[in-house]
Design a protein around this nucleic acid. Structure first.
Lengths: 218, 218
DNA sequence: ATTACTACAAAACGAGTAT
DNA sequence: TATACTCGTTTTGTAGTAA
């Protein structure tokens, strides 16, 4: 759909054409879009041709009304905008369940981390992580997470080993509360580590290779 | 703002450019919008020129990010769509308080109407109506009301006179519950009659000529 | 008043290609 | 690989004007 048609359709809808027939001269429509009467007239004809608007053409004035198809076209556009602006504080990432190296699990078991999880995430994590491998088309969302602050879990030293700062983001998988954890010093992978107070594999009934969807809150 | 710029801006936002810099080749951007690499490249240059996106142009790949102005432009567009789809079940009409012919008042006082108001609107109307004269630019909204069904108040005969069917719509003025009433056989005026269980003129502290805003629910 | 045709002008597009 | 220039083609826009 060419953007100028969408613009015209939107304008007709704004003038009331989404409800009902609305008196709208080609000159008037042109004025609101800063185009000439002739161009507006042409666009109306094209929209009629595409079946996106219907018209009641009297001798004195025409009245325009969006058709079902016209409303659907605008609805799709509206959905895009909703996606954009809801993505501003929420991120939906899909990927496949994978078996990690057990690294995350080792970290989560450290008591100094666990205490902070409980305090800052309001739940005590089950001793283990679920790894989600993100498809290439969505890896850019991981970059967004890496660049966002999240909830800071401070690092510490224990038995001569250094445990670095970790950040986490509240998240949900099929309405089960969980959280994404990642090192603050980003390690650029395509794998997300998820913790929860539940054993996610059994609670969600998933195993390696299953596709899951995760909503992360920024 | 030309619609093709908005389309491009929207696409960049959808690919993640509203959060952060996102790797996006001109060929890839073109593919998602069904335009050539050359045209996509040109549009990017134009958006840069207008200050709507910023770019980090590496040797291998460019990364794009919406600027504050770019986000604002999209926000305005989003607001239009919200208006369209919220207008679908709600109508905000502004006008000036006017003194009517007393016709509405006479009607509302008829007991047969009053009984139905109480039953169908959940309130007993104060014995009087507030008239609102709607500006020419908003008269089209009255047509929407005339063409909508609303809540039917049945007509009757009394003392040899016929009182026709009336319809009403729940409404609010500054959070005060009220209702718009109009004859089913439309009489095409630019005046709305509003009833409420309160005396609106004193409750809202308005008098003739004051501008008021009314939200009508369809 | 309208809408919309024709004829021309302006803008956008894209193939080829430089960088 | 990229991005982006030139330039011929296509699309879009509009002044004049008919209906």
């Amino acid at each position: 759909m060419k953007p100028q048609y969408l613009q015209t359709l939107k304008q007709i809808a704004l003038m009331g054409g989404i409800h009902d027939f609305v008196a709208l001269s080609s000159a008037g429509l042109g004025r609101t879009m800063s185009i000439s009467q002739q161009s507006a007239s042409k666009r109306i004809l094209e929209l009629l041709d595409m079946g996106l608007v219907s018209r009641d053409l009297g001798t004195r004035a025409q009245r325009l009304n969006l058709t079902k198809e016209g409303v659907e076209a605008l609805t799709r556009e509206y959905a895009d905008y909703k996606k954009i602006f809801e993505l501003k504080d929420r991120l939906t990432i899909s990927g496949t369940v994978a078996t990690g190296l057990g690294e995350g699990q080792y970290y989560v078991q450290q008591n100094e981390y666990k205490v902070q999880f409980e305090e800052k995430l309001w739940f005590e994590p089950y001793e283990g992580t679920l790894n989600i491998k993100v498809g290439t088309s969505e890896v850019f969302k991981l970059n967004i997470l890496e660049d966002s602050d999240g909830i800071l879990i401070k690092g510490f030293e224990s038995k001569g080993r250094t445990f670095g700062d970790v950040k986490c983001f509240p998240a949900k998988m099929r309405n089960v509360e969980c959280a994404v954890i990642m090192p603050v010093r980003s390690h650029h992978t395509d794998v997300l580590e998820v913790i929860s107070k539940h054993h996610l594999r059994s609670t969600l009934d998933v195993e390696d290779g299953n596709i899951v969807e995760l909503t992360v809150f920024l």
